[in-house]
Amino acid sequence: MALIKHGKLADNIWHDTDEFAELQALAPLGPVIVDLDIWRQHRDEILAQIARIGGRIGLRLTPGQTPDLVAADLDHFELIELQFAKFTDGRAYSQARLLRGRHGFKSELRASGDILRDQLTFMLRCGFDSFLVATDHQAEAILEAVEEFAHWYQPALDQGATIPALRRRIHGAAGASTADCAAAWAY
């Protein structure tokens, strides 16, 4: 596996676990990613363990799990991983938009699973900032795709001004800056 983070190849420091027992053996805890079941069953114990000996926790959501389920807990996670079981399953795009835009999640938002080169820009625009892919070769290939478009029509979570905003700037109407656009989109 290879990790792309903030546009570069990076080391994956995060560890996965499906077992709470395994989690307890870690001291200090993490960095470890748990699924929603473990989090819900052992939330208080995990938080107590982090308070006692320190640690870092991440969360993995499956495509059917709405971010609303963990909206109140987001400050505890240093990473949230969303899965593309198949590249045709686009639910994680909405999950990412909601986590970033609506619930204000600021830490690492990771895409894993079936990630194709030609989907990377969509993922970036929905707020993902790290990508776990199969090989280094694939990681390098998908990084090329980022520069293919200069501007986009619809507002999203990337920083670039949209085409309608640029038009307003050019045509002299009340111009919106890049920052205005990004801010206006945070809902």
């Binding site: 590249f87 045709t88 399953d89 686009g90 795009y93 909405s94 938009r97 989907q119 820009t121 969509f122 993922m123 625009r125 929905c126 478009f149 986009w152 029509y153 619809q154 999203a156 085409i163 309608p164």
Partner: peptide
């Protein structure tokens, strides 16, 4: 047309 073109969230419905 413009809004829906290569929409980042709604291209894999």
């Amino acid at each position: 047309r413009q809004w829906s073109t290569l929409h980042p969230e709604f291209s894999f419905l």
